[in-house]
Design a protein around this nucleic acid. Sequence first.
DNA 1: GATGAATGAGTGTTCATTCAT
DNA 2: CATGAATGAACACTCATTCAT
Lengths: 218, 218, 218, 218
Amino acid sequence: MEKREVQASVKDERLVQKRRDQMIKGAVALFKQKGFHRTTTREIAKAAGFSIGTLYEYIRTKEDVLYLVCDSIYDHVSERLQEDLAVEKGTLDSLKHGIADFFQVMDEMQAEVLVMYQEVKSLSKDALPYVLKKEMEMVAMFEELLTRCVENGELTLSEKQIELIAHNIFVQGQMWGFRRWALRRLFTLEEYIEMQTEILLSGVQGRVSGAVAVPEKG
Amino acid sequence: MEKREVQASVKDERLVQKRRDQMIKGAVALFKQKGFHRTTTREIAKAAGFSIGTLYEYIRTKEDVLYLVCDSIYDHVSERLQEDLAVEKGTLDSLKHGIADFFQVMDEMQAEVLVMYQEVKSLSKDALPYVLKKEMEMVAMFEELLTRCVENGELTLSEKQIELIAHNIFVQGQMWGFRRWALRRLFTLEEYIEMQTEILLSGVQGRVSGAVAVPEKG
Amino acid sequence: MEKREVQASVKDERLVQKRRDQMIKGAVALFKQKGFHRTTTREIAKAAGFSIGTLYEYIRTKEDVLYLVCDSIYDHVSERLQEDLAVEKGTLDSLKHGIADFFQVMDEMQAEVLVMYQEVKSLSKDALPYVLKKEMEMVAMFEELLTRCVENGELTLSEKQIELIAHNIFVQGQMWGFRRWALRRLFTLEEYIEMQTEILLSGVQGRVSGAVAVPEKG
Amino acid sequence: MEKREVQASVKDERLVQKRRDQMIKGAVALFKQKGFHRTTTREIAKAAGFSIGTLYEYIRTKEDVLYLVCDSIYDHVSERLQEDLAVEKGTLDSLKHGIADFFQVMDEMQAEVLVMYQEVKSLSKDALPYVLKKEMEMVAMFEELLTRCVENGELTLSEKQIELIAHNIFVQGQMWGFRRWALRRLFTLEEYIEMQTEILLSGVQGRVSGAVAVPEKG
DNA sequence: GATGAATGAGTGTTCATTCAT
DNA sequence: CATGAATGAACACTCATTCAT
């Protein structure tokens, strides 16, 4: 997908990237603490280590910062997931691995995910669709993983079920990020990964053998 | 739980309630449209049908409005769920019914849920814990439903599994509300309810007979 | 002509007028001193005797202040000129009287005229045509005075000459306002009025009979 | 008159002149379009064909650019008028020629004149008197032309009348520049020149003999 | 001499909150 | 109780100017 460009006055691309990285890092910390709206551009500049004037050499509006943050998050997550997809297997193990990886990234990037999750709606009508599309792409990665398993005969799932389960995985990943105040008291990340995967696959594998329904009938 | 009081200058309790209802109704519409931060107190007053001066007779700060909105939403949802719990059954059907009901409420109150979901973090350190506690109470209702099923022998689940699944149900309910831009294209509410329930229970029921795990072991 | 409305948040029309009068008065003084661009809205508010917040209850943008100033100037000048036109004479004396009156107003409103003259171009594409139209109306008043004299046989002038002379009168009036740094050293207002009128009419009357110069010599 | 110096860091005088010419040319175009205040130094630099850093090698403040522009305009106009004065005649025709020339320059340099006219007041207390003096010098040229005619017996005018008429000529010239939105619809430049000259001289000649109107009638 | 990244004081504008009527 | 005019702290954003390279 085409990158939605955020205009900078400074020409040196390397410098732009460096400054934006500083910016994003500072902004995430602030947004996490006080949210996008309660954070001022001056605070962002300060956290990034430069002046307000310099901040505006690299963005055009405050919203650009938010967009840059969201974009960077998705980039990181996508990159990680792509690695799992690269291994062309279609086995249950590769699926499990993908899920575990995703949950792990969500754990590592907890701050960023939280921010993104609560602030996307603040994006303009211009940037929102772009970010949403990125999200769909990530869901699509899980659809891909699931489809491969189905094609491999490891799972029996309808198209719609694949889509729903992909969404579930995605949301459960985010859930670990933004409900950690509740979940952390109950589970370690490893437990969470294991238990969610188990629930997911036990329900889903059951469909392979039709055995699930038996007790209900019996 | 103790109600966290929002102070009003007006003494007449009935009037206070009436005005706040007007206020909440107007505020939800506005928050849904433009979010808490982009909505001004003047707009809230106008949408509520009275002047800015009057608004401040019934609240102390803008944040009070948000708190009132959140509180009202939870009240509505809780009330609805309590009805399901009231019927002391512990059958799978009653669980299914509870889930369906919850998803339905989430659908009906989509606007409110969305608002609450994206704006809670804007609550002060004072109000946030109170709202979070309410959320825990709702999750606890599902734990209760699940526990009864386990006690009734309809399901076999550990304590931790109950808690996780309760969270899952809750999050999937919210998911219908705030991911509807993606889900609505794939499922009707009925399909969504049916499919999610199926996945949830097939995984979970499988545990009753141990049949699910077999393929994994084999 | 339709008044171009400047929107106010305050409803009480009388109050709006009062506050705007304060505002205009303060603004003219400031604009005269430092020009529109170098004057801050805060300064305008202070000069008007209220806070910056209050200022913005009566206008929407800084430019509104400029428009209000221009509008008010034209209103004052027009009003004064209308009185001269009201007396339906068409004599040379009535023309002289009109010119003298105009120059006098320009003298009295020197500050305002200077401001308007130097700052109109700062008006937006929205307000500018409206102000220009007002200016044309004022020129038209002199055309009217001149036309009556021609109809009365007091002067012999072509259509085009009437238009040009009307413009000349208008510009000479302004000239007294914005070139006073040079003119004041040479003439009193009375002298200026007398001499300009003489030049104007001697040239113009001369066309009728050539008699003009005679009485002066005699 | 002493040139008011604008300090430059660069020593090479030829280069300084070259860069400033580029600068003035670009600045006039921009000032005409958006006025002095709405034009940024960056825009000026860009229009001039070099960087902001370079711009500041040749001026000290933004205001210097305005001064340079004004100065350059007067230089051009003066130069042109000096040519007319050089021919030491003192005839009515030479006066007419001078007026026509001035109006023509005002037409050609319309953009510049407009700019200068509307922005002089933005000059600092330092530069303003200098520019005003230049203006007086130009008025003085017309005084000179008129005085010669009087000395030659072609006109009969008092000192004060000479000064006033010189001002009138000057202002009517500018008027063609900054009121062209109104005048262009009524007159061509040629018509304007002819009609203004006629009015001016008929009034003024009339004083000599009262004969002015005669030829027209006869 | 030329460049352009960095700076931060300053600007127009908004909006939660108060309080006299 | 209700109103809405008044307030001013706070904010996003701009731009003239500097200076290290």
